[in-house]
Design a protein around this nucleic acid. Structure first.
Lengths: 168, 168
DNA sequence: TTCCGATAGTTCGGTTTTCGAATTTCTGGG
DNA sequence: CCCAGAAATTCGAAAACCGAACTATCGGAA
């Protein structure tokens, strides 16, 4: 289709574009936080709890702490803020009464949807001209990039053996 | 090329993949911060200063504060930390002696390159099978997504007129 | 059953980050 | 020369975060 007339997209260009997208995306979510009196950590926590709620697998404070790379005590205060603001509810697990299941309130869910809807609409508009084949290419690209990043991170965070042996 | 046998990539799927990439990318940079005793804000600041230095357009503390969405005083202490750690240098502008130009030290630059090199290598490996045409599609997709996000953000942060009029 | 170690979550005191309000130094015009 | 404004910093005060101690609960073992 379009080999000439198109700016060449070498590896460095793709990296640059991905970086620009991540910072732009970050700025957008920060806008939501500013509009609702939530700073970065609260935003991240709310998104994670929302995602878990929507998926039907409610998250616990300990799991949230791990996801946020935050201490347990700091996570408690984060949840205190979110609960005080009416965005999150703490539900005790009845089978194991030590555990607590976090749930997002319907109002917070609605607020989030209302805020992110315009972005979804605009993205859909920006993507409407991509064919199924092109979408498949893009999905393949993103999946490969995610896997490469996760794999490199796992390798760098676990500099166990340099080669060969695995099992004890 | 590949219409069947490929998982369908509708809008929701692409959004999900983009989100997964941003969080994965975030985790990776956080790993660098942990390895060098830098928390989130210091990392962000260092990356911004690095980018400006590499581009040959050194950034000032005020611009950095705006980029970080941070107050001026907080930015000063961030810079104090980065300077104390030997990562950043403050150079007074000679033509306007009020201003200060930030510059990253060569050691910090090298450390950053050494750390992010493995990721670049892995990404290049993950992307090596994409043709020039496919890369063009991906670049077009990313550019469109960046523009859509930036445009939506600008619109939501400036709810001036609902329709029609622009110029005074 | 009762006891004990482990687990989930919170509370508490202390350190680090961030902010808003001065303060200092410098520029550019009137 | 003088003054409004800009750039960066300093100075308390408020907020976020952490590590350790604490409470409540579960799951077995004696």
């Amino acid at each position: 289709m379009r080999s000439a007339n198109e700016p060449e997209a070498d590896d460095a260009t793709l990296v640059r574009l991905l970086r620009r997208f991540t910072v732009e995306s970050d700025q957008f979510t920060r806008l939501f936080g500013d509009a609702h009196g939530l700073h970065r950590t609260d935003m991240n926590a709310l998104v994670i709890v929302m995602e878990a709620t929507r998926r039907g697998e409610p998250i616990t404070p300990t799991e949230l702490a791990r996801a946020l790379h935050l201490s347990g005590s700091a996570t408690t205060t984060v949840l205190d803020r979110l609960v005080a603001a009416g965005h999150v509810r703490r539900d005790r697990d009845q089978t194991d009464r030590r555990r607590i299941e976090l749930a997002t309130s319907p109002t917070a869910m609605k607020a989030g949807e209302r805020f992110f809807r315009p972005l979804g609409v605009e993205l859909s508009r920006a993507w409407r001209d991509f064919s199924d084949d092109e979408r498949a290419v893009i999905a393949r690209f993103l999946t490969a990039s995610i896997d490469a990043t996760a794999q490199t991170r796992a390798r760098l965070s676990q500099p166990r053996a340099t080669a060969g042996d695995e099992a004890p």
